[in-house]
Structure formats: structure tokens, C-alpha cells
């Protein structure tokens, strides 16, 4: 599945790279309603997988939690939740409950969404070609959605904490949604492009994908998760900081 050279051979490397950036050629039908970018299909699939996994964990694992963890999986889950919760508390001492939940969702989405491309799941385009489903955030629409939503969260936090004063201070960072969106998109896209390039050539399909696909994907998934979560948390923290404290 990882090498998958046969599926890509209907187009040249130039066309393939261009499509990876613009998604203007290969479209996938969304339940027959409309044609969408493969990234959106990836997003829906990863959401379904993650929610199913979360539901199974909620039903079968969490009720068996012990005060002194007996399983490594419990430790892993607690570490994951604790990591984002502490991150929210450290970066935003005020009103950090919602922030913790949001950055947990965003972090999980970016991390597992990026690792999703390692699965090499195939989708069928409207033209009838097989295509490897990319990371959801390698689609610019996905990156814009996440960047804008993060900015909206920061904005809402500022308004709730400080009223219109908070709104004004959050609006100062007007470039934030743009920078967040394109940073995320650029970072994800670079990974996709390098991986696509390597997979395109049969000669590069041996040994190299282990480094390029697995390690590179793991690395940039971790980095992008950290970057977006950190930026959102620190901006939210400064927006929700009480005004009296700022004046001091």
C-alpha cells in the first residue's frame, strides 16, 4: 500500500504535484451530493475512525481505569489528556477549560490526520482513477477551516473574558488566521509533496519510504501539532488575560 506506484501512473509527476497543491483535477464524490477534494474525504474518514476508537475506549477502557494505573494504555491516555490540559493551564491561566478541550481536539486531529496518510487508503476519483487519500490538512480548505476556527476561538475567549476590550486586543492579531492556515497548509503540503514524489518513482520505493514516509510524517505531525496548539493556546491566554492585570 505504501509504495502504490500503479495508482499514480495515469498522470505525470508535474500533474500529480500540481494536483497535490491545488486539488483541481482529482475530485471525489461526497455521497453523490457534490464533488470535493480528497482531503475532505480523508477528514471525514479520520473523524469516523477517531470517534469510533474514542467510543470503544470510552466503553471498554475508561471504566476499568485504576488509581494506580495497571495498563500502559491508561498511562498513555492520561498523559495525552494531561499534556493538553497542562498546556492550556500554562499558556492561559484564565478560562482554560474550553481551551484544553479545543486544543485536545485540534491536536489529535492534526496528529492522527497527518499520520493517516501513512495508511495509504485509496479513494476513487470522479474520473474513475484510484488515488491515495492525503492528510486532511494538506487540503487548503481544511487548513483554512482549522486556522480560522482557532482564531475564532481566541476571539471568543477574548470577548468572554474582557468584553469589547478583549475583542479589540484579539483583532490586533488580524493576520493570525491567515498565518495559521497557510503555515499549516504549507507544512502539511511539503510532507505530502515529498512523499508523493518518492512514491511516484518505482526505484525510490525501497527502504527510502521508511524514512520519508514513517519518520518524516511522524516528525512533521508532532511539530505541526505542537505549533498550532502552542500558537492557539498562547494567543488565547493573552486574549483572556484580565484587563486589570494587563494595565499593571
Amino acid at each position: 500500500m505504501l509504495t502504490n506506484s500503479q495508482a499514480e501512473k495515469h498522470e505525470t509527476v508535474k500533474e500529480m504535484m500540481r494536483d497535490a497543491v491545488l486539488h483541481d483535477v482529482n475530485k471525489i464524490s461526497l455521497f453523490g451530493i457534490m464533488d470535493v477534494n480528497p482531503g475532505l474525504i480523508s477528514a471525514i474518514v479520520i473523524t469516523a475512525i477517531m470517534l469510533t476508537a474514542a467510543a470503544l475506549i470510552r466503553i471498554f477502557v475508561i471504566p476499568k481505569f485504576e488509581y494506580i494505573p495497571a495498563s500502559k494504555f491508561q498511562v498513555l491516555l492520561e498523559e495525552m489528556v494531561g499534556l493538553f490540559n497542562n498546556f492550556a493551564k500554562q499558556n492561559s491561566p484564565h478560562r482554560n477549560k474550553f481551551l484544553g478541550a479545543y486544543i485536545f481536539g485540534a491536536g489529535m486531529y492534526i496528529f492522527f490526520g497527518t499520520l493517516f496518510e501513512l495508511l495509504g487508503l485509496q479513494g476513487v476519483t470522479t474520473a474513475g482513477h484510484s488515488i491515495t487519500l492525503p492528510a486532511p490538512l494538506a487540503d487548503i480548505n481544511g487548513a483554512i477551516a482549522l486556522g480560522c476556527l482557532s482564531y475564532f476561538v481566541v476571539l471568543s475567549g477574548g470577548v468572554l473574558a474582557n468584553g469589547f476590550g478583549g475583542l479589540a486586543s484579539a483583532l490586533k492579531e488580524f493576520s493570525m488566521p491567515l498565518s495559521m492556515s497557510f503555515r499549516l497548509f504549507g507544512a502539511m503540503l511539503s510532507g505530502v509533496l515529498v512523499t508523493e514524489l518518492v512514491y511516484y518513482y518505482f526505484q525510490l520505493s525501497f527502504v527510502l519510504p521508511i524514512i520519508v514516509a514513517v519518520l518524516f510524517t511522524l516528525l512533521h505531525a508532532t511539530i505541526q501539532t505542537y505549533v498550532l496548539v502552542m500558537l492557539t493556546a498562547s494567543s488565547y491566554g493573552s486574549a483572556t488575560e484580565p484587563k486589570e492585570k494587563i494595565n499593571q
Binding site: 475532505l40 477528514a43 471525514i44 479520520i46 473523524t47 477517531m50 470517534l51 474514542a54 467510543a55 475506549i57 470510552r58 491516555l77 489528556v81 493538553f84 484544553g100 478541550a101 479545543y102 485536545f104 481536539g105 485540534a106 489529535m108 486531529y109 477551516a145 482549522l146 476556527l149
Partner: peptide, 15 residues
């Protein structure tokens, strides 16, 4: 999609 995911993860895992 992301809102559903975040809400689901909050209710099923985080909380």
C-alpha cells in the same frame, strides 16, 4: 467535520 470530532473527543475521551 472538525466541530463534530472535537465535540465527540471531548465527550468520549477528554472529559
Amino acid at each position: 467535520n472538525f466541530s463534530i470530532l472535537t465535540l465527540g473527543l471531548y465527550l468520549l475521551l477528554y472529559n
